[in-house]
Computed example of a mutant assay.
Amino acid sequence: MSELPEFYFRVRENGAAVYRVDTENRQRRIEMTEIAVINIKNGKVKPHGSHVLTPSENQAIARWMADREALLARRDLDDIHRTVDHLNLTAQWAQSRASDADLDDVTDRLLMAMHDLRSVLVRKKADRLMKGQPGADQRGE
């Protein structure tokens, strides 16, 4: 059996529960003792019960949080690239296969979502362009 990690991170919706992994017991069973809960959204680490986190535990948790945040950022961007593909597939579907009833079912919601997205993208692009111009800091934002 390969060597087990010192810590196990059970992913939760907003972070993870952190466990210390122990196999150094009489039965040689894997024991996992919860030591903390992480909230990745606000960066808080809450020790479990009366446990006091050691410097090595804090380092392992900080390393996991940085790795997790990087992974989630990569996934977010990948989801956006997939959305672009889905928009293209949706256009093809609407043009070639959708029935009038199908189009009646989705057109208004798609148009509103696309209008909202376009508004956000145009505003954000304008903001980025203004940052590169002298006096952009004086816009009051």
Rank of each mutant, 00 (worst) to 15 (best):
T83E: 01
A94P: 00
L129K: 03
M32F: 07
L77D: 11
T90K: 01
H86K: 04
T23N: 13
D100P: 00
V52R: 15
S56E: 14
L121E: 08
D104M: 09
A101D: 15
N39A: 05
S56M: 07
E34S: 10
E141Y: 09
M65I: 04
N25E: 10
D127M: 10
A16D: 03
A73W: 01
E69L: 12
D78Q: 10
K46I: 14
L117S: 12
G43A: 06
D127P: 00
W64S: 01
N58R: 13
S99R: 07
D116K: 13
Q27M: 10
D76K: 09
R63W: 01
L110M: 12
F7R: 06
A70E: 11
V106T: 01
K44F: 06
R10F: 04
M1W: 12
G132T: 00
H81M: 05
L72F: 00
L72W: 00
A66P: 01
F7T: 04
Q138V: 06
V21T: 15
N88L: 02
D67G: 04
Q92P: 02
Q133K: 15
L129S: 07
N58K: 12
D127S: 11
D78N: 03
G132C: 03
R12F: 00
Y8Q: 12
Q138T: 04
G135T: 02
D78W: 07
V21K: 09
N14A: 14
E57T: 07
R118Q: 06
P47T: 01
H48C: 12
M65C: 09
R97C: 01
W64A: 01
S96G: 05
A36G: 06
D104G: 04
L117F: 08
R82A: 05
R75Q: 08
H115D: 15
D79W: 08
E57S: 12
V45F: 10
R12W: 06
T83W: 04
E57K: 09
S99E: 04
T107Y: 06
P47V: 05
M32K: 15
T107M: 14
L53H: 07
T54F: 02
S56N: 09
D108Q: 14
I40Y: 01
H81I: 02
